[in-house]
Design a binder for these strands. Sequence first.
DNA 1: ATGGTTTTTACTGCGTC
DNA 2: GACGCGGTAAAAACCAT
Length: 321
Amino acid sequence: MSNSNVTARTRTNEVSREEERESEETACPECSGNLVMQGAETVCQDCGLVVETDEIDRGPEWRAFDAKEKDEKSRVGAPTTNMMHDKGLSTNIDWRDKDAYGNSLGSNQRKKMQRLRKWNERFRTRDSKERNLKQALGEIDRMASALGLPENVRETASVIYRRALDEDLLPGRSIEGVSTSSVYAAARQAGVPRSLDEITEVSRVEKSEIARTYRYVVRELGLEVQPADPESYVPRFASDLDLSEEAELRARKLLQNAKEQGVHSGKSPVGLAAAAVYAAALLTNEKTTQAAVSEVADISEVTIRNRYHELLEAEQGLPMA
DNA sequence: ATGGTTTTTACTGCGTC
DNA sequence: GACGCGGTAAAAACCAT
């Protein structure tokens, strides 16, 4: 250690100690975004709020006046660094089978060292997974709030991601892609689906990759995601279009009806929902255009037309509900 | 890769305000 | 004339094989 480390520094005051304890929470108090260290400051990744400026002083609290005194008073190792994910605190075991004096080890010792290396490596990769997870969770949170998804969806998305990580599904796939897929799957499982297009809007990866990764994750994890229920899109579309409760109910009926008759197999759920909403608006004499529905549902007008004809036809076949 | 199905794009004609 | 709506043909996207 160099002599410059020996300079006296003031002790950390009580206030910053208090802050330190509180900042163990990694969420930003303002927007609950991720916190990151930038030099001596802890700032929020999302809103830029500076949470903590008063960094703990990690220098020695004593002074030494010569090398001998320093050796006596020193009781710590290398300074911590932010450049390594674990701040340089993890253990490294040399690959050489030599002891501290450079002598070769006996065969028993060699075996022991091999075992130690193995385990040390295992714990270290666990650390890297933790870090990976942190980043992914931040992403999941960001996307979920951008999509207006409730807390429990983020929860399940995190669980899915964790499982993917545990099953070693990550190698070869981007963190982004997998976390996006987790959000997509979680939203569907929770009955508040978002279309792939909507997901793609807020993700940093392309649609094709999301779809591919999503399929992969679902398959490998044996996730049970039934095809999205068109009905679950209805409330959102209806409220986006300022339609009445009545219209919303009407749309649901239309869909249930269609479901019983099996008209909807193979058609995109979003298209069905959009068509039902449009048809319902018509039936309740509320003002909407195909263009408007197409807008909020991200579905072409043509598809809406085709679907809503089918819906009405199905309605004819059955007694009015 | 291929073929079948669904969705989208682009365009056209009709009626209404 | 612009707008909403309906229809069509061809292209594109998607899916299972």
